[in-house]
Design a protein around this nucleic acid. Structure first.
Lengths: 223, 223
DNA sequence: AATTGACCAAAAATACGAAAATGGTCAATC
DNA sequence: GATTGACCATTTTCGTATTTTTGGTCAATT
């Protein structure tokens, strides 16, 4: 038997389903209420307005993404390397429609919302260059590429994998998971510092950064 | 003094300029004729219809791209490696609006055209997996990643660099050329076969492939 | 006290005829 | 013979009146 979820939970779930499918503009409050088995008035008992509901749904999706990311990462028996962290980050993003849509700036999903609330995009700036600087300083990443360039590289590559998969020719036969494994192999060797290697420090940095992002995405949304 | 270019040349040039800026649907034959200093009837003396003109312009853009690619590649004093070939390929693509727009499926530019002529997309399938198979066989590329996966990797990374640059946050301060140099460093080491290295065979393969693509794009468009 | 759904003003979708623009042709012109 | 631009049928755009849908409220109901 299923746990009777709270009204808020049901609204978030229904909202996530419908917003993911039809987007912000083409999903009405009526439909969400019906899908959640709540009257329209009930929606406004829980959320101030449609915007607040949408923000809460997006925030929820990011928390789901962060959890999924960490779950995939810890379940992977391989090394605790940056390349693997990145690999699972992309896999989790791809599996969370609203996160993917935000990264790819899918206006069909975010509709008029991104124009009114462009600060939402800050949530996608995950590849911060100070992290790469620390990795370099710890001897966990090559130092002949400046940290800001590394950050940009990873951002663009990540964008390519998430956005490209659904834009490029359909018959690309290679499933995303396999591409991501290949990418991890490529990055593992391409980003390593060939002289000094410090897997312990690397692991500490990666672990810290991962947890930090997870907690940041889990925290309460801004007022 | 400037060479008086032929009517066909002026039409291709004007078409390239206007199609790049306004797209297929929003550029009229009248405007192209005016921009080229030709009467409307003159357009139809040169091309069967608007579609034929557009196809010729796109074909011309691809030839320009191929030339630019090879020019950048040969002007680069660095190694004649796959990573550098790829780097300059992306730089040239990015510098050729109609090529970039086709790769990114920019419907603002290609408008209704891509629906009627989807085979145009075949021109963007440059990363063919048999090439990677040959590179692997020649000892010029690591063999622990299957060739089709390598092809997919490079396709997605390329997409990320070309499409991501204009979609992602504007203040990304790192210019594309520098990102591409970093990418080449990353790929050079990430794709290399650590055991056997065969720069001579690699160079032959890359040279052959480059010329082949260049000639293919230069050839006459299909009837 | 918690929840509902009829209700309202505002916004968005639709319908549709008028007007402008467009792709393409060809008799007149150079 | 090469080139032009007025011309035509069709499509697209525009303006607008009408209808539908939507976000949000609140008296009535449970």
């Amino acid at each position: 038997m299923t746990e009777p979820s709270s009204r808020r939970q049901r609204l978030l779930s229904a909202g996530n389903r419908l917003f993911s499918k039809w987007g912000y503009d083409k999903t009405s409050v009526d439909e969400i209420a019906a899908e959640a088995g709540v009257s329209k008035g009930g929606v406004y008992l829980e959320f101030a307005d449609k915007d607040a509901l949408f923000k809460a749904v997006v925030h929820d999706a990011f928390a789901t993404y962060a959890d999924d990311w960490l779950r995939r990462f810890t379940a992977d028996p391989g090394d605790w390397s940056f390349a693997r962290m990145f690999q699972h980050s992309l896999a989790a993003m791809n599996a969370t429609p609203l996160v993917k849509a935000l990264l790819t700036r899918d206006t069909r999903i975010y509709g008029t919302f991104l124009r009114r609330e462009p600060e939402l995009l800050a949530m996608t700036q995950s590849a911060r260059s100070d992290f790469f600087g620390q990795m370099q300083a710890a001897g966990a990443m090559r130092r002949d590429i400046p940290a800001p360039v590394l950050a940009q590289l990873m951002t663009l590559i990540g964008y390519g994998f998430v956005a490209g998969m659904e834009t490029l020719p359909t018959g690309s036969s290679v499933p995303l998971e396999e591409s991501l494994r290949g990418l991890a192999l490529l990055l593992d060797r391409g980003l390593a510092d060939p002289e000094r290697s410090n897997p312990v420090a690397a692991r500490a940095l990666i672990e810290g950064m991962t947890i930090q992002v997870r907690d940041a995405l889990r925290s309460a949304p801004p007022p």
